Simulated scan of single mutants.
Amino acid sequence: MARTIAGGPGQTGEPPGPVPGEPAAAPARVWSTPALVVLCLSGALLLGATGVFLGAVFLHVAPANALSREYRHQVDGIVYPEFEQNWKLFAPNPLQQNVRLDARVRTVVDGGATREHDWLGLTEQDIAAIRGNPAPSHADQNMLRRAWDFYDGSHAGPDGTLTNPRGKLAEQYLKRIALQRIGRTADGERILEIQFRVTAVPVAPPGWAGESPPVTPPARELPWWPVNDEDYRGLA
Rank of each mutant, 00 (worst) to 15 (best):
V19F: 08
P15F: 06
G111A: 07
D231Q: 11
P213T: 03
L95W: 12
E230H: 08
T50E: 03
E116L: 10
F83S: 07
V105H: 11
A219D: 10
T4I: 07
G132P: 04
V203P: 07
P214N: 04
L47T: 10
A56R: 03
A147P: 00
G210S: 05
S68I: 05
V99C: 05
E193L: 01
W31N: 06
Y80S: 03
Q97S: 08
P213R: 06
A200N: 09
A135C: 05
P27C: 00
G51P: 06
R166Y: 09
L174D: 02
E70R: 15
G234L: 11
N86S: 15
A113V: 12
A24E: 15
L120N: 10
A44T: 13
L47I: 06
V105D: 04
G121M: 02
K175Q: 08
A178D: 08
G210T: 06
D187C: 01
G132R: 09
R115M: 13
D231P: 10
F58N: 03
G188C: 04
W87A: 13
A25Q: 03
W31L: 15
E189G: 05
G132W: 06
Y71L: 12
G51Q: 09
A49D: 05
I194E: 00
A113C: 06
R190Q: 13
P34V: 02
E221L: 07
G160Q: 02
F53C: 01
R176M: 07
G153M: 08
V75D: 11
V38L: 13
G111I: 06
L162Y: 14
V38G: 00
N98L: 14
T216L: 03
N86M: 14
P217R: 00
P158D: 08
R106K: 13
V203E: 01
V109A: 12
K175W: 03
T123L: 06
D110Y: 03
L179A: 04
G183T: 04
V201S: 07
L47C: 15
G21H: 11
P15N: 09
V108S: 09
A62D: 09
D126Y: 04
A35Q: 14
W148P: 02
P158T: 04
